[in-house]
Amino acid sequence: FEARLTQASLIKKILEAIKDLVTDANFDCSPEGLSLQAMDSSHVSLVSMVLHAQGFEMFRCQRAVSLGINLASLTKILKCAGNDDSITLRADEKGDKAEFVFESQSQDRLSEFELKLMDIDSEHLGIPDTKYSAIVEMPSSEYRRICSDLGVMGDTVRISVSKESVKFQVDGDIGKGSVCLHPSSVVDKPTEVVKISLEEPVDMIFSIRYLNYFAKAAPLSDTVTLSLSKDFPLQIEFKFGEQMGYLRYYLAPKID
């Protein structure tokens, strides 16, 4: 397996977005691309990342291989890459180590690292294509701000989606608060738009702590899509652009 990405910053941001949720993960390499699925230790949330082969500058994978990686170790290695460096990842069939090569844009600096891989026996969940009752698209900076603002008030947030608005409500020890967003009527910048697609109104409760973990993915995408159905896990998607892939989080709801 060998693959090269023009910008190391993409992998750095992906790692920042998952390393507080997951400690070890298998990076699954196949001819289709690079993917990862992992749950947090309490099995309340799941992260699913896909980087399509066509999004890489070069991608070669003769046989599917899983690279078991400790994310804290990978973070240490990626700290040595400049944001604008290209990154080449290599692994052989034995799968006991992975090689990372960082090259500066001017090609006058080349650094190489080798990472020992681990055997990770991870449980994979089959996540079927789901038709959600409510889909909300909003700026990822707005999502991050709401989670961080409401997170200081309480532990859970009630998300209510109607045709007219999406409302985030918190009820905590010191009092309560809410933020309500209405779909944008004037579209100045596509990245500032709030869009709601509704089959039926949804009203659900989630842990703010996890929503805040997911907000770490905001630097990956200008917009975020929240998909909800009654008594079903919330899906939060950050797309890296149409061709590249996505980072999705799933969060089990709090129910009676």
Binding site: H43, S45, E123, H124, A252, K254, D256
Partner: peptide, 14 residues
């Protein structure tokens, strides 16, 4: 009172 469910309740493992 609400309680936190886990994902296995909704998705099959394989």
């Amino acid at each position: 009172n609400k309680h936190q469910t886990t994902l296995e309740k909704y998705y099959d493992g394989h």
